[in-house]
Simulated assay, not measured.
Amino acid sequence: MNFEFVTANRIIVKTNGLSDLEHLIQPYGERVLLVARRNAQATKDAQSYLENAQKSVEVIYVKGEPTLEQLSENVDFARAGNFDVVVGIGGGSVIDMGKMIAALITNTKPIMDYLEVIGQAMPLTKQPKPYIAIPTTSGTGAEVTKNGVVSSAKHKVKVSLRSPMMFADIVIIDASLTLSLPRHVTASTGMDALTQNIEPYVSNQANPITDAFAKAGIQHIGRSLKRAYDEPTNLKAREAMALGSLMGGLALANAKLGAVHGFAAVLGGMYDINHGVVCALLLPHVMRANVDALQASDDQHPILKRYQEVAVLLTNNQNASIEDGIDFVFDLVKHCQIPSLASFNIPAADDAIIIEKAKNSSSMKGNPIMLTEVQLQSILENARKC
């Protein structure tokens, strides 16, 4: 046995807990950089609480998923601003942007030097500025991970800035902030959260602590995503989804992901397609491909037992089979009206490039079995048919 488990310094789970920001911010100096979505009520409320605390607040507004160009511009602004602390409030893109800004204020080499895959992956050498993360979606778990994801238009791929120094100092999980989410955002972020529990549980880097979080997360999401989608103001469902998302973040930060995220990083970098949608569309097909490959390799492979346990957790049926689990995910994708992969017009001619890039992604290294190019091709082909 050989593993470690690390996470954010402090995690506060409190419905209607955003107001606590007013006193939580007190020890962190006078100048606050707020990273948020423009016109969001949560942004306005957070800014109000910070100003009530007599802090000087400036705001960076994030639009869409982080790009290298946006990150560079925001880091230049932040470095010039003499800020004491960064607060990120929003979905995963906002949380990641804030996390990366906090790290790069103090680590001043060119950004490319720190990036994985397309850069040098150099380690951070200086402690980032303090960071408070407040998610407003139940999806990425980014509030408790040690990396931020950014896309490069030049390289047509999403990559990570990663360091154990990048864990947030304080995380506030306030499920009430998710009550106003549109259904399509509930669906895509919820499917991302489910993927980020299932992949660490079957990962080749899973450990007993990540297992505990992932199993609970799968159960929370399996029993609550449909309800949150059908009844957006159902607070109990939103609270369960918030917990499920958090647990996925705790799991993935300490175990690796897998082929779903290996593909997602590439597809999201090459095409205008939402990360959670990609995860939803690929998850059941990757589950099927992994199970087939594992069975062909060793029909008693221990990961097959884990896939059967995933089915039990999703369906709440102790007799559920692996097939039942895969069917459950297919049904969930259909119920949440996730658009088809074919609707994004991703040309089959690009498959070879997609597969080559996916094979080299960080996430693919956590897949429970190495998939061949033929198996990876079949995942894309099967996803296009649905």
Rank of each mutant, 00 (worst) to 15 (best):
E65N: 10
R10H: 12
V374N: 14
L294T: 02
H335M: 07
L341I: 14
T186Q: 11
T7H: 11
S343T: 09
T7M: 06
F77K: 13
D351R: 02
S180G: 13
K215T: 14
T233D: 15
K44V: 13
F3L: 03
K14N: 12
Q47W: 01
S297A: 14
S56P: 00
L341W: 12
P66F: 03
S160I: 02
F330C: 04
C336V: 15
E239S: 02
G217L: 06
A153Q: 10
P27E: 11
R38Y: 09
G244K: 15
L294Y: 02
L252S: 00
A349V: 08
G249C: 10
M191D: 07
P208V: 07
Y131I: 00
H155F: 09
I25D: 02
P339W: 08
N345T: 07
T43A: 01
R288H: 09
G222H: 08
D20K: 15
A342M: 05
D174I: 15
K236D: 15
L332R: 10
K63F: 10
S188V: 11
T7A: 09
E356L: 13
Q205C: 01
E239F: 06
Q300M: 13
D298I: 02
G276A: 08
A342T: 10
C386P: 06
V312Q: 13
L225D: 01
E73F: 04
Q120D: 15
E51M: 11
A289K: 14
L294C: 03
T108L: 04
H275D: 03
H220S: 10
A349E: 13
R79H: 03
K357Q: 14
G141V: 11
Q337T: 10
S19M: 11
E116M: 13
A102H: 05
H285R: 15
A42L: 05
Q120L: 10
H275N: 06
A251I: 09
R288Y: 07
V374Y: 06
G268V: 13
A296K: 14
S176D: 14
S343F: 11
M270S: 00
A121T: 13
A253K: 06
L281H: 05
Q127H: 02
K63R: 14
L18F: 02
Y229I: 09
S151L: 00
A349L: 06
G81V: 01
L225W: 14
C386T: 15
D230A: 15
I218G: 02
M166H: 08
A237E: 05
A240P: 07
M165C: 01
V85W: 04
P368H: 01
G269E: 07
A216C: 08
A352R: 15
D327F: 02
Q120A: 09
H220I: 05
P130W: 02
I173E: 12
H275C: 08
P347D: 04
M287Q: 07
Q127W: 00
D20P: 01
I95K: 11
L68A: 00
L71E: 05
T178I: 00
G90Y: 14
L252R: 09
A320L: 01
K126N: 14
E199V: 10
A242C: 12
S138N: 14
L68Y: 12
A296C: 03
Q377I: 01
L281D: 09
S343G: 12
G366Q: 08
K63G: 09
A78D: 01
